[in-house]
Simulated scan of single mutants.
Amino acid sequence: MAEQQPVKPFSYLALFLALAFVSLFIRLLPLGERGWLFPAPDVVLCLALAWVVRRPDYLPALAIAAVFFLEDLLLMRPPGLWAMLVLLGSEFLRRRAATLRGLNFWFEYLLVAGVLLTMFLANRLILAIVMIPQPSFGLSFAQFLATVFAYPAVVALSHFVFKVRKPATGEVDALGQKL
C-alpha cells in the first residue's frame, strides 16, 4: 500500500496565505484620515521569517515571493523590489535554519534583526539609486523598528498558538526523513 504524504505542510501554507491576505486586507482598509502615531510593523514579514527559521519546509520560496509581490502591487510599491529583498533574506535564513536549531532565541533574534536591517537599507539604497520617491527616513526606520520589536511576539504566537516549533536534533518526519 502506498504511503500518503503528510498534509501538515500544506495546511501551514494555507494558514500563512490566509493570514497574509487578512493582514493585507486590513492594511488596505480606509481607516480614516488621521495617521497612527507610530507605523505598524510588517507582521507578514515577521511571520514569514519566523516560519522559515523554525520550519523551512512549511513555507516554500514561491509562496513568499507571490505574497510579497502581490503586496508590492496593491500597496503601490515598486513591483518586485521588496518581494526580491524578502525572498533573498528568507532564503539566507533558510540556509541557516539547521545551525539556528540548537542556538538560543536571542541569537536567532539578532540574526533576523540584522537581515531586516540589511533588507531595509538595501531597499532605501536601490530606491535612491533609481531616484524613486520614498517615504522619509524616519518613518521607514520607525517601521523597521516596529517590525523588529514585533518579531518576538510573532514567534511566541507561532510557537504557542500555531504550533510552529523548531524540530529537535535528530527528529524525523512521518516518512522517516531527518528534519
Results as ranks from 00 to 15, higher is better:
L49Y: 14
L49T: 09
A50P: 04
A50R: 03
W51H: 01
R54G: 01
R54A: 08
P56L: 00
Y58M: 06
L59W: 02
L62Y: 11
L62C: 15
A63R: 08
A63C: 14
A65E: 07
A65I: 10
A66N: 03
V67D: 00
F68S: 02
F68T: 02
F68R: 04
F68L: 09
E71F: 12
D72A: 10
D72L: 11
L74W: 08
L74H: 02
L74R: 05
L75F: 03
L75W: 06
M76W: 10
R77Q: 03
P78I: 06
P78M: 07
P79G: 12
P79W: 15
G80V: 03
L81E: 12
W82Q: 08
A83V: 07
A83E: 06
V86G: 05
V86Q: 09
L87V: 10
L88G: 13
S90L: 01
S90H: 02
E91A: 01
E91S: 05
E91V: 01
F92K: 05
L93R: 05
L93I: 05
R94C: 01
R94Q: 04
A97Y: 06
A97N: 10
A97M: 04
L100C: 09
L100M: 12
G102S: 02
F105T: 05
F105R: 12
W106G: 04
W106Y: 07
F107C: 07
F107M: 11
F107N: 11
E108W: 00
E108P: 00
Y109N: 09
Y109D: 04
L111Q: 11
V112T: 13
V112C: 03
V112G: 02
A113C: 15
G114F: 14
